[in-house]
């Protein structure tokens, strides 16, 4: 079967919907969407979306796997929960959006240079080291995310805020040196490892 035909066969099939149901947090709600569009209209960042949530749900049902997972729309969600409140079918849209983003990340199909994705990675890397977020380091790595020059520029721009925070004891410059960890760091890492194992097992069972 040619790829073209295969693509056609997959259209409007349950396969991707089932995949989302199995792998995406709250994904089982996608089938309940009735395409009213109130989520799309209620989203305060609506203009920034390439695909509205309601459209993403329709795309899932239409089997547009690649387009959905490569979309940057779900990365735009700021978790304001307006859509959930308004949804006449009570779909946990915020959670589904995050779930889809997470799933795309796991599959390695995050849109190139997606800033939210980058930030999430920084956040994760930062967190996993000490079991807590080192805000100073996280802030700086965020500034330098897009290169050294831009990092310097941003740092200078934010300098006054940084000093102010230090002065009011909202930030400790000593954290730059390693930084302190949670009480039971190894325990924390064990928890994470276990969770990762469970996730692997689940993926092995359902496939991804």
């Amino acid at each position: 079967m040619s790829d073209m035909n295969k693509a056609m066969v997959e259209k409007y099939r349950n396969s991707f919907l089932s995949e989302v149901e199995a792998n995406v947090e709250e994904g089982e709600w996608v089938k309940m969407c009735m395409q009213c569009g109130v989520c799309a209209g209620s989203c305060p960042l609506g203009d920034a979306w390439e695909h509205t949530p309601q459209k993403i749900f329709m795309m899932i049902r239409a089997g547009k796997r690649d387009e959905v997972l490569a979309s940057d729309s779900m990365w735009m969600c700021t978790s304001c929960y307006n859509c959930i409140v308004r949804c006449p079918r009570e779909l946990p849209i915020t959670h589904i959006m995050h779930g889809l983003a997470h799933y795309a990340k796991r599959l390695g199909i995050v849109p190139q240079g997606q800033p939210t994705a980058k930030f999430a990675q920084l956040f994760w890397d930062n967190l996993i080291k000490k079991g807590r977020v080192n805000e100073l380091k996280l802030g700086l790595s965020l500034y330098f995310m897009n290169g050294f020059g831009e990092g310097i520029k941003t740092s200078l721009k934010m300098k006054d805020i940084g000093l102010g925070m230090v002065k009011t004891k909202r930030m400790n410059p000593m954290e730059m040196l390693g930084g302190h960890a949670v009480k039971d760091l190894s325990g924390f890492q064990k928890v994470i490892k276990k969770a990762q194992e469970l996730e692997e097992a689940r993926l092995a069972k359902h496939g991804a």
Binding site: V38, G41, P88
Partner: peptide, 25 residues
């Protein structure tokens, strides 16, 4: 084809319907 997201008004009190036409977004 749209469930209106919300209604606001302008200075003259004219209601403004806001939302997304789902047929093609």
């Amino acid at each position: 084809k749209s469930k209106v997201a919300n209604v606001i008004t302008d200075k003259e009190g004219n209601p403004i319907c806001r939302g997304v036409d789902t047929e093609g977004y």
